[in-house]
Amino acid sequence: MRDTEPAMKSSIAESSPPQPRWTHVALPVAEVERSVDWYTAFTPLVPVAVFEDDTGRTAWLSNEGQVTDPFVLVLVTFHDDRGTRHPLLAPFAHIGIEMPQRQHVDDIAEQARQAGCLRMEPADIPYPVGYVCMITDPDGNTLEFSHGQQVYTQIRHTKARPTQERWGTPAPFTSSAKAS
């Protein structure tokens, strides 16, 4: 993995989102390299950036080619915590990955079973969950692989309709912080 910080710094002003966006989920990990290897073996995620400074090492992973609506999984090893597991997404909290075919869930389950990280065997769960299995990463975080959950389809379908029709009248954003 290579450090991508210099290229990133030069383009910050020209690449800021036009409005607030949900862009990432960050997880502390015991060993960044081990976690990147695990995530690239078990998920469709690929490394898109790597950073290192005096406090630690960070890797960003995303779906390959996901540039229109960027979203990354940030994996961070702080030097002082290197080697220490910090499972945050357990027992139910999880990262969800929707698979295009039911067989893909079975394939991941078999791969995880052989690697000793299968948390929940594939099962049909009533709507809106679908056919799912759960596995754990090297730090004990849970990932859910699903088919038929339709998060991808539902959200893409709502994109074609006007905002009020999709979500109702939005509530005004207010901050609980008081100006001083």
Results as ranks from 00 to 15, higher is better:
residue 75 L to H: 03
residue 131 Y to F: 14
residue 39 Y to R: 06
residue 46 V to N: 06
residue 47 P to V: 01
residue 99 M to N: 07
residue 99 M to F: 02
residue 135 I to E: 05
residue 13 A to K: 15
residue 87 P to E: 05
residue 109 A to R: 10
residue 43 T to I: 12
residue 125 I to M: 12
residue 63 N to I: 13
residue 102 R to L: 11
residue 19 Q to M: 12
residue 86 H to Q: 12
residue 129 V to R: 05
residue 69 D to N: 15
residue 34 R to E: 14
residue 55 T to Q: 14
residue 33 E to K: 12
residue 85 R to M: 14
residue 139 D to F: 03
residue 70 P to F: 00
residue 106 D to F: 10
residue 72 V to M: 10
residue 43 T to L: 10
residue 136 T to S: 09
residue 107 D to I: 08
residue 32 V to N: 07
residue 23 T to H: 07
residue 53 D to H: 08
residue 15 S to P: 01
residue 43 T to G: 08
residue 68 T to A: 15
residue 78 F to R: 13
residue 141 N to F: 01
residue 91 P to A: 10
residue 37 D to R: 14
residue 60 W to D: 06
residue 25 V to I: 15
residue 133 C to I: 04
residue 31 E to D: 15
residue 108 I to T: 13
residue 24 H to I: 00
residue 33 E to Y: 01
residue 82 R to E: 15
residue 114 Q to E: 15
residue 31 E to M: 11
residue 107 D to P: 09
residue 136 T to P: 01
residue 60 W to L: 14
residue 29 V to E: 02
residue 22 W to D: 02
residue 74 V to E: 15
residue 91 P to H: 09
residue 21 R to Y: 01
residue 120 M to R: 15
residue 137 D to R: 04
residue 104 H to N: 14
residue 25 V to R: 07
residue 35 S to D: 10
residue 96 G to N: 10
residue 99 M to H: 02
residue 80 D to C: 01
residue 98 E to L: 01
residue 29 V to F: 04
residue 62 S to D: 06
residue 66 Q to A: 11
residue 66 Q to E: 01
residue 34 R to Y: 01
residue 121 E to L: 02
residue 83 G to T: 11
residue 67 V to F: 10
residue 16 S to N: 12
residue 45 L to E: 00
residue 103 Q to Y: 04
residue 130 G to H: 04
residue 18 P to L: 14
residue 25 V to P: 02
residue 35 S to H: 08
residue 102 R to I: 03
residue 37 D to C: 03
residue 93 A to G: 09
residue 21 R to F: 00
residue 133 C to K: 02
residue 30 A to Y: 02
residue 64 E to D: 13
residue 111 Q to P: 00
residue 100 P to Y: 08
residue 109 A to V: 11
residue 33 E to M: 05
residue 39 Y to P: 06
residue 103 Q to W: 07
residue 36 V to A: 00
residue 144 E to T: 05
residue 101 Q to W: 12
residue 64 E to L: 10
residue 55 T to Y: 14
residue 131 Y to R: 05
residue 58 T to M: 14
residue 67 V to K: 13
residue 19 Q to I: 07
residue 76 V to G: 06
residue 42 F to P: 02
residue 79 H to I: 03
residue 134 M to F: 15
residue 76 V to L: 12
residue 100 P to K: 11
residue 79 H to W: 10
residue 128 P to G: 05
residue 61 L to P: 02
residue 104 H to I: 01
residue 102 R to P: 09
residue 87 P to G: 05
residue 17 P to D: 06
residue 87 P to N: 07
residue 109 A to E: 09
residue 18 P to T: 13
residue 95 I to D: 00
residue 109 A to M: 10
residue 70 P to R: 00
residue 142 T to N: 12
residue 86 H to P: 00
residue 62 S to G: 11
residue 138 P to T: 01
residue 75 L to E: 00
residue 43 T to C: 10
residue 129 V to A: 07
residue 89 L to R: 09
residue 96 G to I: 04
residue 126 P to N: 07
residue 129 V to S: 03
residue 130 G to A: 05
residue 79 H to P: 04
residue 124 D to F: 04
residue 82 R to L: 12
residue 106 D to T: 13
residue 82 R to T: 13
residue 123 A to S: 13
residue 76 V to Y: 09
residue 94 H to V: 01
residue 94 H to S: 07
residue 42 F to E: 02
residue 53 D to P: 06
residue 57 R to G: 00
residue 35 S to P: 02
residue 34 R to P: 09
